[in-house]
Design a protein around this nucleic acid. Structure first.
Lengths: 226, 226
DNA sequence: CGATTATGTTGACAATGCTAACACATTGAT
DNA sequence: ATCAATGTGTTAGCATTGTCAACATAATCG
């Protein structure tokens, strides 16, 4: 019997068990549950996650998950946190790339953000849905030294732009909120199908970023000149 | 027995029935179902709507709704459409108020939009959720003469601004998409608790509108002058 | 009046989240 | 080493929910 059963391939436990012996304990059920649930969210949507379906996929019984999470909602919260880890990782390099100008980093950030949403629409929707509020309230608490979210970095980028004279002086928190709003709103409208754009995604993105930059950059009103 | 039963108060049927006689037919079950469901969405959230709870509220049996809607999903779609009727009504007067300048109408529109979302968060979330896609795909089909949506009017407002020389020339569809994105994004971030703002809603709104207007208005870059 | 259609009701079923009771495994103090 | 306590996994079963089938009542129309 060289058969490898399914459960074994999900078993992340470094302690090896005798081959083909199905161990009573899964070994890493919690990690497997979150990881598999994350995949299910992205592939089939949040509603596809039933505890029975998920348990089956990871090779456990219906209620094993209750040993690691209080209820389904807690499991979803863990999936959301895992989603944000992926998400935040997309921006670390961009914000830290001091070789590039503020404007370059700005539009790269926007492009990466929209790309994540468009490529992972079902996950993005859950991450920024109503339920995601609970565990992530520190996003806009800029005083919190633990705050390493993309929003925090965006505020920093705008501050840098202001200090370099690229952006006009204004409350960088408010400016960042405006920027985030537009990019988040654009992402949501597109992935939820309200803005039916098909092939015009790029044009809409460019127009949005251009409007934002025009609004943020140092400018002189026409009336000030004429 | 001068008791008035609950069902009667929901009976919109103009044909009067003998008092205290509970009629076999509801009389206006479909309208009552949508109206009550709309209230339930706003008061308790979408998840509070179970066909049993809803049927009970309108004084009908569990499955009566299936005589008027194929399934629960179809009922929700009707609720969403009813929500958009309320929503769109908020903007008709604003867009049509030609006494006011384009800029005034612009910011009034934005303020009314955000106010609707903040005052009806649960309804707004459902209206602009994933499920609302189906029945409302014509929103950004500007060729459609039936299109009387707010988005259509927004495009018109931006065109007017461009013709008056208030806004710089650009594709008005793209400009409107940018504007809608920011206001929708701001609404969603606030009502879903991602941007925790509490008392700063006004400041954030003003900053966002200002950024948009700065980005849309006729401007001269500083570099063009210096 | 009678038949057809529209509308409303009851009973039942499968799927789902969850709890209770039990089974197995691991750990750690003695 | 022992064994009690704890951690982890399983099965049985319950309440809720969406849905369907079968039946009941009302409205419509020839």
């Amino acid at each position: 019997m060289t058969n490898v059963n399914i459960k074994e391939s999900f078993c992340y436990n470094p302690v090896m068990k005798p081959r083909n012996a199905k161990p009573y304990h899964h070994g890493n059920l919690k990690t497997a549950a979150v990881g598999t649930a994350l995949e299910m969210v992205e592939n089939e949507g949040l509603e596809a996650i039933t505890l029975r379906a998920l348990s089956h996929k990871i090779g456990a019984s219906r209620t094993a998950i209750y040993r690691h999470f209080d209820n389904k909602e807690a499991l979803i919260q863990a999936v959301i946190l895992a989603g944000f880890e992926r998400f935040d990782a997309e921006f670390i390099d961009i914000f830290a790339d001091h070789e590039r100008s503020v404007l370059e980093r700005f539009s790269m950030m926007g492009r990466a953000y929209l790309a994540f949403a468009v490529e992972n629409p079902k996950l993005y929707r859950v991450m920024f849905g109503e339920k995601a509020r609970l565990e992530r309230e520190a996003v806009c608490d800029l005083e919190d030294p633990e705050n390493t979210t993309g929003f925090h970095a965006l505020v920093g980028l705008i501050e840098a732009g202001q200090q370099q004279g690229v952006f006009k002086k204004s409350d960088p928190f408010l400016a960042a909120a405006s920027v985030w709003s537009m990019i988040h709103g654009l992402s949501m409208l597109i992935i939820d199908g309200h803005l039916v754009v098909s092939d015009k995604v790029d044009a809409i993105f460019e127009a949005g970023i251009a409007t934002l930059l025009e609004g943020l950059k140092v400018t002189l009103q026409a009336k000030d000149v004429c």
